[in-house]
């Protein structure tokens, strides 16, 4: 993985906890998540539309979801959860790659998509990352996933021009 990063760091992003009204008028709370939120996130991922999976995650079986959550909710990772009425409806994570920086991923339940929650989640996650002293964040996204690519570009991610199935994008924060 050798994503490109912009020369200049991005401006400061909002930090959790925060609340906003989404495009459908729902009040969404975004807060930091840890392994104490594993049960809520498991409940969310059990509702996740399999068609919205990307590159094999989230896993489908409950046991595999639990194992995966164990990994990404570890101490050295950075997580935020979006809640509506207390229930987790979105989740974004930064996982250290042990080399360049942190890999980012974001998930929003299908009935909460298209309402701006994803952008708020990514921005709040990057704000938390800034507070934690993280500098480089990258991700991969399937080339045909136009809504996701537009979201990441809008937030400030830059695209690498590697000729791969997946697009690599990076941001300096």
């Amino acid at each position: 993985m050798s994503p490109a990063f912009p020369d200049e760091p991005a401006d400061s992003f909002p930090r959790p906890p925060r609340s906003f009204a989404d495009g459908a008028g729902r009040t969404i709370d975004v807060e930091r998540a840890s392994d104490a939120d594993a049960a809520d996130l498991l409940a969310m991922y059990r509702e996740f539309d399999p068609a919205d999976r990307a590159q094999g995650i989230p896993p489908v079986q409950a046991e595999a979801i639990e194992q995966w959550l164990d990994t990404i909710l570890a101490e050295d990772c950075v997580n935020v959860v979006a809640r509506y009425d207390g229930a987790a409806v979105g989740h974004a994570t930064l996982v250290p790659d042990g080399d360049i920086g942190y890999e980012l991923a974001i998930f929003v339940l299908s009935e909460y998509q298209g309402a701006g929650i994803g952008t708020e989640l990514v921005e709040t996650l990057l704000g938390l990352g800034q507070a934690e002293g993280i500098e480089k964040v990258w991700l991969t996204v399937e080339r045909w996933n136009d809504p996701a690519i537009a979201l990441y570009k809008n937030v400030g991610f830059e695209t690498s021009d590697a000729e791969r199935f997946e697009l690599e994008m990076g941001i300096r924060i």
Partner: peptide, 8 residues
């Protein structure tokens, strides 16, 4: 990948 995405 570090967070579990499958990459060819």
């Amino acid at each position: 990948s570090p967070l579990g995405k499958i990459q060819l």
